[in-house]
Design a protein around this nucleic acid. Structure first.
Length: 730
DNA sequence: AGCACGCCGACT
DNA sequence: GTCGGCGTGCTC
């Protein structure tokens, strides 16, 4: 009998270690070993973790092979998981061991099997029955007679642990050993969900039908906050659970997960597994094991949850799929959204990308028919966006040093008179984005990277928004030495708040800017206060675009809609379009669409016009036109090469060196693109530079990059990472 | 001569 | 990733 997934004792097998050495041949241990089995293998004088990855390569002297050490007490990785890791490594040009490391990152994974003590009911009620003892027995009955951990049982019953001990002594309860990690409670898809509107019902049915059909499918689910997106995809989850498969819902930030877990519990009667950096080690280990044993039905998690070793994954939901948090830009560079599609296709699963403001890539994939597209009309039938209009700053009378136009000021006055709230949106933290010397014109830059420093009056310091460095606000010009000529130029939210206070002296203003809150709780309280009507005018950065709704907000004023329309960032216009839609969507309440006013110097700019109409197709056309004007082919791919080194000179020198040997790129019609070398940032003591390559869409980019980089030797201490598709590039 | 340091290759 | 070997260059 030959089982291709099992290797007999003494057979030569390939083991992938978590060390950079990669695949090495070993001898299968006594009793044989399964494909995907996690093992400990000897490597030089050390023992390291590895995974049985297939038959051995056979190119190593058989006499020198060493046998596998011990097997790790964990379910073997499924063949589909192995394929997923292989393909992800190939796609992102990441060494395979890094991916295995990422996929096995759960504390205590390699620990020998450990047990925990549990009690369950075995004997008759005790002779002496007491209140506390009765409560223990009742609680145990409620949980199906056990088994439960003694401490947990005492806690649930609200009595001391000595009561449990007494019942064990009396023979009513028996203590036994159980596996350390317990399965998660089952979710019940049969419970009734929230009543759905006809639109939501249609979307839910369509998703459930795709799930029922089985196999790979990809759907872009569009709908604004409150449109019932979540309810719709929870029906796909329900369908998935009915088929006995596992589901994964990814969320961009941990902060969103608590509320989501409650909704899942309300829908399915139990809490799902939770996976993100805030989860304790023991829970992570439990979830990791349970994913592999089908001991968990649904996992809610951050991007890294995609690398859990699911046994039978039937559905992946990527909520807020446009969110940049799905991109990991450290260690392994990957986009969890793209890799979710890859994993779903390997697992024969359904993938649902949900967003009110889809990323350009997903939008294009839906347009070209690669993804299905489902549109959920807005909250309860009202218009999706408020009434949108531009304020043409060229025709407004603006006093120097002010940023609120007379037209916008009148609109705010009208809201104040009616007791309604206004939001003034300015995506700039701090007091002033630039500090300039009036004598010589020099701008104060960061000493560690090439960004300009932003004045923060609250801190009374200059702050670099790129690397986080700070320094005192200079009184003497660092360039020309003239004293007393340094001046803040341009507005940030702190400065805008000054103008609001001067202009609307009787209004209560609140600033929402991420740097002004020390904790998530302080922020939550501030938002609750504003919702309760404690502010008339909200001054906010992009953090107002997310989540929270202000029920009495009827006006959104965008201070500078032109911000982010130009510049070297390819993604600026797209982000701006999404941001404007999200921010404008804050306005309006029951029976009142609200109004959004965009201050701009270029009301005829195609992107501004697309924002005003809320029309994604118009935006897409504008974007394609802008890109072709910038000399880019309409369809292509972008690859980022990221170099980092503690020494700034070393990075720029090496970037130049690489640029000089880029012949393999030319062979596939690709080229280095943009201002090379690109801006330098400093992150954790290393200078980082990014080189961009653009390539025709169908070109074998990975091969070319591999050939390009294989010939170069990395200087000591130089780190290199490759970021495939770093930004959309139509 | 003796030692600290950094570079480089091996590790199956 | 980590270890050991080896060459360089400094100090006693």
């Amino acid at each position: 009998m030959t089982d291709p997934l099992h290797y007999a004792a003494g057979q030569r097998i390939g083991v992938l270690t978590t060390e950079p050495v990669g695949l090495l041949d070993y001898l299968a241990p006594e009793g044989g070993v399964a494909l995907g089995q996690l093992v400990v293998v000897p490597l030089g004088p050390r023992r390291v973790m590895g995974c049985v990855w297939g038959p051995g390569a056979g190119d190593f002297d058989a006499a020198r092979l060493r046998p596998v050490g011990r097997l790790i007490d964990a379910e073997p990785l499924a063949p589909s998981m192995i394929e997923f890791l292989n393909r992800t490594a190939e796609y992102t040009l990441t060494p395979l061991p890094h991916l295995l490391r990422m996929a096995t990152r759960a504390p205590g994974l390699a620990d020998p099997p450990a047990a925990r003590r549990v009690v369950h009911r075995t004997g008759d009620p005790p002779q002496r029955m007491t209140d506390a003892r009765a409560r223990i027995l009742d609680t145990l009955d409620e949980h199906g007679g056990g088994p439960l951990e003694p401490g947990e049982l005492a806690r649930l019953a609200g009595v001391g642990s000595s009561v449990v001990k007494g019942l064990i002594a009396a023979g009513t309860l028996t203590e036994t050993e159980a596996a350390r990690d317990a399965p998660f409670p089952r979710l019940d898809p049969g419970r009734p969900g929230k009543p759905l509107s006809p639109d939501q019902r249609a979307a839910a049915d369509s998703l459930a039908a795709a799930q029922r059909k089985g196999g790979f499918s990809a759907t872009l689910l569009r709908g604004v906050t409150g449109s019932g997106k979540t309810e719709a995809y929870l029906e796909a989850v329900a369908e998935c659970l009915r088929h006995g498969r596992q589901a994964l819902v990814m969320l961009p930030e941990i902060a969103l997960s608590a509320e989501f877990l409650d909704r899942v519990e309300a829908r399915f009667g139990a809490r799902p597994g939770e996976w993100h950096s805030g989860v304790t080690g023991a829970e992570r280990r439990r979830l990791w094991h349970m994913a592999g044993r089908h001991g968990v039905d649904l996992v809610v998690g951050a991007r890294s949850a995609l690398f859990l070793p699911f046994r039978d994954l039937g559905l992946i939901v990527v909520d807020e799929e446009h969110d940049s948090a799905y991109k990991q830009e450290d260690g392994v560079w990957y986009s969890a959204r793209d890799m979710a599609v890859l994993r779903a296709s390997i697992e024969g699963a359904q993938v649902v990308l949900a967003s009110a403001t889809p990323s350009l890539e997903s939008w294009v994939n839906a347009q070209t028919g690669k993804y299905e597209r489902l549109d959920l009309p807005s909250r309860h039938g009202t218009a999706e966006l408020p009434e949108m209009a531009a304020i043409d700053l060229r025709t407004e009378e603006m006093r120097p040093g002010t940023w609120i136009s007379p037209t916008l000021a009148r609109a705010v006055e009208a809201r104040l008179a009616r007791g309604e709230q206004s939001l003034l949106f300015l995506n700039r933290r701090g007091y002033a984005p630039v500090t300039v010397c009036r004598a010589c014109g020099a701008q104060v830059g960061c000493d560690d990277c090439d960004a300009r420093m932003v004045e923060h009056r609250v801190l009374n310091r200059l702050v670099c928004h790129q690397c986080g460095a700070t320094k005192p606000i200079p009184t003497v010009c660092p360039a020309c030495g003239v004293e007393g000529k340094m001046a803040p130029v341009g507005p940030g939210v702190e400065r805008l708040a000054e103008e609001v206070a001067a202009r609307f002296p009787n209004a209560r203003a609140a600033i929402l800017s991420s740097d002004l809150f020390s904790s998530a709780r302080a922020l939550k309280e501030a938002i609750a206060g504003i919702s309760a009507g404690e502010a008339d005018i909200i001054i906010g950065t992009q953090m107002v675009a997310k989540g929270h709704n202000f029920p009495n907000l009827t006006l959104v004023g965008v201070i500078d809609a032109d911000l982010g329309l130009q510049g070297a960032d390819l993604r600026a216009a797209e982000r701006s379009f999404q941001l404007m839609q999200q921010v404008a969507g804050r306005a309006g309440r029951a029976g009142d669409r609200g109004e959004a006013l965009l201050q701009t110097h270029q009301p005829d700019h195609p992107v501004i016009r697309a924002i005003l109409s809320g029309d994604e197709e118009a935006f897409w056309d504008a974007e394609a036109a802008a890109r072709s004007q910038a000399g880019m082919p309409p369809f292509g791919r972008l690859v980022g090469i990221i170099l980092s080194h503690p020494d700034l000179g070393a990075v720029t020198d090496f970037a130049r060196h690489l640029a000089g040997r880029a012949a393999p790129l030319a062979e596939i019609g690709a080229e280095l693109w943009g201002p090379a070398p690109a801006p330098i940032t400093r992150i954790r003591g290393r200078h980082r530079v990014r080189m961009l390559i653009r390539a025709p869409r169908q070109a074998p980019v990975q091969d070319a990059v591999r050939r390009w980089l294989s010939g170069v030797k990395l200087p000591t201490n130089m780190r290199l990472a490759v970021d495939i598709d770093p930004q959309s590039f139509l």
